Simulated assay, not measured.
Amino acid sequence: MISLSLFAAFALMTAIAAFAVLWPLSRTRAAQAAREADLAVYRDQLAEIARDAKSGRLPKAEAEAARIEVARRMLAADSARETASTEDPARITRQTTWRRRMAAVFALLFVPVFAVGLYGMLGSPRLPGAPLAERLTAAPDRGDVAILVRRVEEHLQKTPNDGAGYEILAPVYLRMGRPEDAARAYAEAIRILGPSALRHSSRGEALVIASDGLVTADAARAFADALALDPNEPRSAYFLGLAAEQDGRAADAARIWGQLLARTPADAPYRPVVAAALARVGGAAPAAPAAGVPGQPGPGAADVAAAAALSSDERNAMVRGMVDRLAQRLDSAPDDIEGWLRLVRAYGVLGDKDKAAEALKKARATFKDNAEALGRLDAAEKELAAKTGAGEKG
Results as ranks from 00 to 15, higher is better:
Met1Gln: 04
Met1Ala: 13
Ala9Met: 05
Met13Lys: 02
Ala15Arg: 02
Ile16Tyr: 05
Ala18Ile: 01
Ala20Thr: 05
Trp23Met: 06
Trp23Cys: 00
Pro24Asp: 04
Leu25Arg: 02
Ala37Thr: 13
Asp38Ile: 09
Asp38Cys: 00
Leu46Gln: 12
Ile49Phe: 05
Ile49Lys: 03
Ala53Thr: 01
Ser55Met: 02
Glu62Leu: 13
Glu64Ile: 09
Glu69Pro: 00
Glu69Ala: 15
Val70Tyr: 06
Ala71Trp: 08
Asp78Thr: 12
Glu82Asp: 11
Glu87Lys: 13
Pro89Gln: 03
Arg91Thr: 12
Ile92Pro: 01
Thr97Trp: 04
Arg99Ala: 11
Ala107Lys: 01
Leu108Glu: 00
Pro112His: 00
Val113Phe: 14
Phe114Tyr: 03
Ala115Cys: 10
Ala115Ser: 13
Leu118Tyr: 08
Gly120Phe: 03
Leu122Met: 08
Leu122Asn: 11
Gly123Arg: 05
Ser124Gln: 15
Gly129Leu: 14
Glu134Cys: 03
Arg135Trp: 09
Arg135Pro: 11
Leu136Ser: 11
Thr137Gln: 14
Ala138Trp: 05
Pro140Tyr: 07
Asp141Arg: 12
Arg142Met: 08
Val149Phe: 02
Arg150Asp: 13
Arg151Pro: 10
Gln157His: 02
Gln157Leu: 09
Asn161Met: 10
Asn161Val: 10
Asp162Gly: 05
Ala164Gly: 02
Glu167Asp: 11
Glu167Lys: 09
Ile168Phe: 13
Leu169Trp: 02
Leu169Ser: 08
Tyr173Thr: 05
Arg175Val: 06
Met176Ala: 15
Met176Val: 05
Arg178Leu: 14
Pro179Val: 04
Asp181His: 03
Ala182Ile: 13
Ala183Phe: 02
Glu188Val: 04
Ala189Ser: 14
Ile190His: 03
Arg199Thr: 01
His200Trp: 10
Ser202His: 04
Glu205Phe: 14
Leu207His: 01
Val208Glu: 07
Val208Ala: 11
Asp218Ser: 08
Ala219Lys: 10
Phe223Pro: 00
Asp225Trp: 02
Asp225Ser: 14
Asp225Phe: 06
Leu227Glu: 05
Pro231Gln: 07
Pro231Asp: 01
Asn232Asp: 13
Arg235Ser: 08
Arg235Glu: 03
Leu240Ile: 09
Leu242Phe: 07
Ala244Gln: 11
Arg249His: 15
Arg249Asn: 15
Ala251Tyr: 00
Leu261Val: 12
Ala268Thr: 07
Arg271Glu: 08
Pro272Gln: 00
Ala275Ser: 13
Ala276Arg: 15
Ala276Pro: 00
Ala277Pro: 10
Arg280Glu: 15
Ala285Arg: 14
Ala285Gln: 12
Ala288Thr: 07
Ala290Asp: 07
Ala291Arg: 08
Ala291Cys: 00
Gly292Glu: 05
Pro294Tyr: 02
Asp313Ile: 07
Arg315Trp: 10
Gly321Cys: 08
Met322Arg: 15
Asp324Ile: 04
Asp331Ile: 10
Pro334His: 06
Asp335Thr: 11
Leu341Ala: 06
Arg342Met: 01
Val349Asp: 10
Gly351Trp: 06
Asp354Val: 12
Ala356Asn: 06
Lys362Gly: 02
Glu372Asp: 15
Leu374Ser: 10
Arg376Cys: 08
Ala380Gly: 09
Glu381Ser: 12
Glu381Gly: 06
Thr388Pro: 03
Ala390Ser: 14
Gly391Cys: 01
